[in-house]
Design a protein around this nucleic acid. Sequence first.
DNA 1: CCTGATGCTGACCGTTCGGTCAAACGACCC
DNA 2: GGGTCGTTTGACCGAACGGTCAGCATCAGG
Lengths: 219, 219
Amino acid sequence: MPSEPMSADPMPAEPAETSARPLTRIQKRNIEAILDAALEVFSAQGFRGATLDQIATAAGLSKPNLLYYFPSKEAIHLELLSSLLDDWLAPLREMRAEGEPRDEIMRYMRRKLEMSRAMPRESRLFANEILQGAPRMGGTLAVELKVLVDEKAAIIRGWSAAGKIAPVDPHHLIFSIWALTQHYADFDVQVRAVLGPGHDPYTEAERFLDTLFDRLLRP
Amino acid sequence: MPSEPMSADPMPAEPAETSARPLTRIQKRNIEAILDAALEVFSAQGFRGATLDQIATAAGLSKPNLLYYFPSKEAIHLELLSSLLDDWLAPLREMRAEGEPRDEIMRYMRRKLEMSRAMPRESRLFANEILQGAPRMGGTLAVELKVLVDEKAAIIRGWSAAGKIAPVDPHHLIFSIWALTQHYADFDVQVRAVLGPGHDPYTEAERFLDTLFDRLLRP
DNA sequence: CCTGATGCTGACCGTTCGGTCAAACGACCC
DNA sequence: GGGTCGTTTGACCGAACGGTCAGCATCAGG
C-alpha cells in the first residue's frame, strides 16, 4: 500500500481502467470470464431476466466472488454496453469520403453483416437495450451516435449530389443497413425456423444484400 | 349453474374462449383492460422485467383481482402472443398470386410499415420474444409461420421467373420487409435519437422504402 | 327484498433475487 | 515460518416477486 492515505478510496473491488494499480493475472482472468458470461446471459435473457447466480455459474465463480470484482449487476451491464459501443460503431467510423462511394457503402454493409454473424450476442445485447427504451444509453445515443451518423450522412448526401450514387435519404440508408444486418443476429431463431434446415442464413443474406444495395445505389 | 355437476370444473377464473358461459360486461371490460395493460408493460420491460403489480396498476386493478381473471403471469403473456400472431400475419396472408406483382409486394411492405406505426407495442412484444429465443413460440414459428412464408415465397419466385419482377431470393425479400419495417417500431428510440427533433420517422421511412423496393424489384 | 353467483381485497406465504459480511484461504515475499 | 495482501466462501439479510386464501362487497334475477 504505497503512498496513498488509507482514508480515501477503501475500494478493494474492481480496480478498473481509472485505477493506477495494474491488474493481477487472476483479476484479468476472472474479469474477462465474468464479462463473457454476462454477455452470454444478458443477451439471452435481458437485464432483468438475468440473475447474478446464472452469470456467476457461467463464469465458474461463486456469487460473492463475482461481486468482489464488480460492485453490482448494473455495473457489469454498463461495462458491457459502454465497452461494446466502440466496436459496434467502428465500421461506420471507417467510412471515408475519399473512397469510392459504392465500395464504401457496400463495405460498411458487409462489415455489419459479418459482425452480426460473428458477434450475435453483442447484437442482441444492444437490441435488448434499445427495445426497452435505452434507459442506460439514451444520452450516448442522442449525442455520440447522432454526431457520427450525421457526419457520415453528410458524406453520403455529397455522393448523391455528385451523381456517384443514386439519390437516397442518407439517414434512412444507414437505418436500412442496421435493420437488414442486425435482423439476422437478433431474429436468428425466426430466420432459421422459416428457412428450415440446410440453409446458411448469412451466406444467403450476403448475396441478397449485395443485390439489394447494388440496385438501390446504382446511379 | 345449469346441467353441470359441481364436482368437475370448479374453475371460477377466466371463463375463456373454450368456456360455454358468455362473458359478463365486467369480465369483458376487465379482461380487455388487463390485456392492454399487459401489452404495455410486457412490450416495454420484457416478460421477466414485467411484474404483476405493474400490470395490475396499469389496468386499474389489484393484484389478486388480476389473478382472478388470469391464472398466472405466464397465461397473460401467452394469451397476448397467440392472439397477436394472427393480426401480425394477416398482411402476408393477403398477398395474392393473381394480383399485380409489384403492387402486391409494395402493398405488403406498406401495410407492415403502417402496423409498425400503429402497433409498436405489439411489434416490441414479438421482438422481445424472438430475441430471447422464442421459448414460448418456437413451435408455432417452425410450423405455421414457415408454411405461410414458403407458400408466399413460391408465389414470389413465380413472379421472378415470369419476369414480372427482378430476380430476388423470395425468403430474404420477405425477411428484408420484416427487418426494415419492424426496425422503426422496435428501435424507435434510436431512430428518433439519431434523426433529432423535427422529423417524422414513418413519413420519411415510407418514401425511402418505396424507393428501395421499387429499385430492387423493377425488372 | 332475498339469494346465489360474481367480483374484489387485505393479509399472508414461500421463493428468488441482489447484495453484505466476517472469516478463512492461498500465494508470495521477507 | 510468519506476515501481508489479494482472493474466496458460507451464512445471512431485506426487498420484491408470483401466487393463495378466507372472507367481504356487489350485482342481477326472482
